[in-house]
Design a binder for these strands. Structure first.
Length: 271
DNA sequence: CACGGATCCTGATGGC
DNA sequence: TGCCATCAGGATCCGT
């Protein structure tokens, strides 16, 4: 479910409240994608220092170690008012002096993993091969071009892979390619530097805009305050198969690439 | 080593 | 409170 904007919106919505909180207890539900990797008791008594983000991971810094939280396809983090009743899909409850932070994840593709430090093997196994942060200073055009020039896959799949640039998921890959006027099926190596420059800028702007709009709420995303996002209302192509392109009126098409749906305008987006 | 495909899991939706 | 197929915002692993 969540791509970079939704993860960042989630982070912004709970980071200040959780900061400084003391962990009082931890309650685990059904198994998530990976095991926690430590005795939950190790977390009890620790203070939450702050929350950072790396790609689609939330890094919850503790006095001693950190939690890597991934929301998978269907996860959401929120403060819960009714501390007593963990629901069917509540799989990680962090009871703290500042409230109960709860991970709800019906599909359980998400995970909460403890690591002693960010450089530990446990953390690096998850973070080590991630690409550059698209909204950070490290996202420079030269590197972007150099990495993509070597790829032969369609550009959409390279964006999704996350080893060139992180955080671009299925919605924003389609949206960024629309903004850049690039057909998702175009092979990376065929793209000129000028077109890659457009894409580089498009990735930044679409993600920035999505964060501003509170992310995309397609079926159930909400931030830690329970608020929906609104970016989906201004999506140019995602989820709009059969509808007219907002720019040229052509019918938006849907195709499948690597088991994922892709949307594009056949007129605005050139091969 | 880059790539394509299967895979983990549950729920919503639509056709029959 | 019908059944079945398909699809869903992610990412790893495995075979080629």
């Amino acid at each position: 479910m969540p791509e970079l904007p939704e993860v960042e919106v989630t982070r912004l919505s709970f980071a200040s409240r959780i900061a400084g909180a003391c962990i009082e207890s931890v309650v685990l539900g059904k198994p998530l994608r990976w095991p926690l990797g430590c005795d939950p008791q190790l977390l009890v008594g620790q203070q939450v220092v702050g929350v950072r983000r790396r790609g689609k991971y939330l890094l919850v810094d503790l006095q001693n170690g950190l939690l890597l939280v991934h929301l998978g396809m269907s996860g959401s983090l929120a403060f819960s008012e009714n501390a007593g009743s963990a629901g069917k899909h509540d799989h990680f409850d962090l009871h703290t002096s500042h409230g109960l932070l709860r991970l709800n994840d019906p599909r359980r593709f998400g995970a909460v993993v403890f690591a002693p430090t960010q450089n530990s093997p446990q953390a690096q196994k998850l973070l080590g091969k991630l690409g550059v942060e698209p909204l950070g200073d490290g996202f420079d055009l030269a590197t972007f071009c150099a990495l993509l020039k070597k790829r032969r896959v369609p550009i959409k799949q390279a964006l999704l892979a996350g080893d060139v640039v992180v955080g671009v998921g299925n919605i924003y890959a389609s949206e960024a390619l629309f903004l850049a006027g690039i057909r998702p099926t175009t092979r990376c190596a065929r793209l000129s530097r000028v077109r890659l420059a457009l894409l580089h800028q498009a990735v930044r702007s679409v993600l920035t805009r999505a964060v501003e709009k509170g992310g995309s709420t397609l079926r159930d995303f909400s931030n830690a305050q329970g608020e929906s996002g609104y970016f989906q209302l201004e999506a140019a192509v995602y989820g709009r198969a059969g509808q007219p392109c907002r720019v040229c009126g052509s019918v938006v098409r849907a195709i499948r690439q690597g088991q994922r749906s892709t949307f594009y305008c056949p007129t605005c987006q050139k091969p």
